[in-house]
Amino acid sequence: MTTEPTVTTFAGLHHRPGLPLLLPNAWDHASAAGLAARGFQAIGTTSLAVAAAAGLPDGEGATREHTLALALTLGSGPFLLSVDAEDGFSQDPGEVAELARELWAVGAAGINLEDGLGPVGRHAAKIAAVKAAVPGLFVNARIDTHWSGDGDERETLRRLDAYQQAGADGVFVPGLSDPERITALVRHLEVPLNILYSPAGPTVAHLADLGVRRVSLGSLLYRRALGAALDAAAGIAAGHAPAGTTPTYAEVRALERSVSVSRSANATG
Rank of each mutant, 00 (worst) to 15 (best):
H240Y: 13
E180A: 14
H188C: 00
A238S: 14
Q165V: 12
D161W: 07
Y163D: 09
H206E: 15
A233F: 15
V186G: 04
R187E: 15
E190A: 14
A241G: 05
G218L: 05
E190V: 13
L193N: 07
L207M: 05
Y197L: 06
E190K: 12
H188F: 11
S198L: 03
D178C: 03
D161L: 07
I236K: 08
L176Q: 01
L176R: 03
T183I: 03
I182W: 10
A233Q: 10
D169R: 02
A208H: 06
S219K: 01
I182P: 02
L185E: 05
L220N: 04
V171Q: 03
L185Q: 07
I195W: 03
A232N: 01
A168C: 13
A228Q: 13
A237Y: 14
Y163C: 06
E190C: 07
I182T: 08
A225I: 04
L185Y: 12
H206Q: 15
L220C: 06
V186H: 04
G170F: 12
L176K: 02
Q164V: 15
D169H: 11
A241Q: 09
E180I: 08
L221R: 00
L210T: 12
A232K: 00
L217Q: 00
V215T: 06
S177L: 08
A229R: 00
V204F: 09
L160H: 04
A225F: 09
H206L: 12
L196G: 10
Y163Q: 04
A162I: 15
L217K: 00
A166K: 01
H240Q: 15
G239V: 10
A200W: 08
S198C: 00
R187Q: 14
S219I: 05
A225E: 06
H188D: 01
N194S: 05
R223D: 00
S177W: 09
G201L: 09
P199D: 11
G235D: 12
L193W: 07
L160V: 14
L210Q: 13
Q164K: 06
L226D: 10
H188I: 03
A162C: 14
